[in-house]
Nucleic acid binder design. Structure first.
Lengths: 291, 291
DNA sequence: AAATAATAGTGTATGATGTACGCAATTTGA
DNA sequence: TCAAATTGCGTACATCATACACTATTATTT
């Protein structure tokens, strides 16, 4: 099925004239002044609307809707997250949601941020940056794997909501005591973030497959099978050699080749890579000390 | 818009009985025997169909269709990649495509693999693993940025086509001469791959924004603006401090905070992180030598 | 050569989806 | 009390993926 968000399409394809219809005040974010589309999306994530005093009271709230959306996505995947299913879960009509979010994208923006949750709070005691970064990385990975639909949405650099910033903040807290410059700290955040999200992809893919009804066994076999196509294919001498070396096979617990003697689970693979990354960071930190 | 693949939906939602209709031989992959869905997808990527000898000659080929699909996605993004637009570009009816691919997902599977292209061939001379891995990483990043729609598709661990394996093969070639065990080599592949894909996300997001009609300036402002919401917000003390430190601002060339004195472009940020990862790998390699 | 079998390409139909629009009920400031 | 603004909803529509049936095409069989 591919990663469908199930979008149908905005009927009026061309640039929307942003005309002010009378029927729909559309969330607001005052229609004319509002800047870029990106800015508008960001606003919706950060700025609360001051409840108007005139009309009838809303029976829903953005939070309600976001919670419902998350529940749907958690349960049946991103493909099941439609305006209809969300509204249905709340016992409202599809169109009711549009009083709270201008479109599905806005609902997803909000749901993503909410679904990320808040990062683990650091214990009062300082455990050393390495241990803390590791902890952060595991937490982030766990968060992503527990909601595989988050990774189904293409990464967008904006908009970023409160929780997204919280995760960044939490990371920066882990290295707050180090000698890194402010700029270096941001770089380290980028490195670790990049590794964690990239390295979680396989586990996320498995999680998604599971919730899609594919058994772990089936999945492992399929992944292993594709790799094994390399064997004896002259185009892939190195891959072929590695796959056929000694233990060579595919372990049951993991679709990836096992390490001689010690089979690696995906967790262990993640861990191994993380330690390499941390080593690299540590080396950089050490290099700052001498002078 | 979110990352839509523009899927409409498969009308028959429940598990398809895989019944054999008479009207549509459906690609084939013989209907009853075929194993898992995953296996079936993989087959389509790897196993050529032996042209049937009975009926009329096909006027298209999978390659034709894949090329058209890639052209559409390159030009107008993944959202524009519909069975209709692809068929239109080829001058055929929408349904004609279904004689070559059982569904859109299969077409995308094939398009993704083809769009990845082949990795850069290593020059005959050995340049040292570090330089070669670096080269591979840059090439992969460039490939992803040049086709930002690839990253719009959720990562799936399977199926993986020939080109995907080629990229893996090329990586393994770069470290073929090292003392790493076969298993370690696979791990290194995982680490570098994870970093590269994770670290390319921002650049990819920018590339996507650009092709969506958003100016680099707008984009940078939006990304920077979200970060700046942290300033003076008690929830984000570390982030706030870093953003307001010295140079603190947002450089024009990049939405990310600039490093004291030396503004970093996204490329430089990628490079910085990559060197940390390579340092970590190098340290591991060195640790293997003594014994 | 004619008949047969199987495939390729197409038109039409269907159900899902996001969302525009306008109406009716609700709430409150004037 | 009344008018203005707002909420929730039914309906309408465009766009998708795709099922199905029909025709034209081609090779094999007779």
């Amino acid at each position: 099925m591919v990663g469908k968000t199930g979008q149908g399409h905005p009927p009026g394809t061309g640039a929307k004239p942003a005309r002010r219809r009378e029927g729909l005040p559309q969330i607001s974010t005052n229609p004319e002044s509002a800047g870029t589309e990106l800015q508008r999306r960001s606003q919706l994530l950060w700025e609360a609307q001051p409840r108007p005093s005139r009309g009838s009271k809303p029976k829903l709230s953005r939070e309600d809707i976001v919670q419902a959306a998350i529940t749907v996505a958690d349960g049946d995947g991103l493909a099941a997250l439609t305006m209809h299913t969300v509204a249905e879960r709340l016992g409202f009509s599809t169109m009711a949601l549009y009083r709270y979010f201008p479109n599905k994208e806005a609902l997803i923006d909000a749901s993503v941020d909410a679904a990320m949750g808040t990062p683990p709070q650091r214990s009062g005691t300082r455990a050393g940056w390495r241990r803390e970064v590791r902890h952060w990385a595991y937490a982030k990975r766990a968060m992503l794997c527990s909601r595989p639909w988050l990774a189904e949405l293409p990464f967008v650099a904006a908009p970023h909501g409160p929780n997204w910033l919280s995760w960044h903040e939490a990371f920066l807290q882990t290295i707050a005591d180090t000698a890194l410059s402010p700029e270096d700290k941001m770089d380290m955040l980028s490195v670790v973030h990049a590794y964690v999200s990239g390295a979680s992809d396989t586990a996320i893919s498995l999680a998604r497959a599971l919730s899609r009804g594919i058994s772990p066994d089936e999945w492992a076999k399929a992944v292993g099978a594709d790799l094994c196509r390399a064997i004896n294919d002259p185009r892939y001498p190195n891959l072929s050699a590695i796959l056929t070396s000694q233990s060579g096979g595919i372990s049951d617990s993991s679709p990836l080749p096992v390490r001689a003697g010690k089979p690696r689970t995906m967790e262990e693979g993640f861990d191994f890579g993380l330690e390499r990354v941390l080593d690299g960071i540590e080396r950089y930190m050490v290099s700052l000390e001498p002078p």
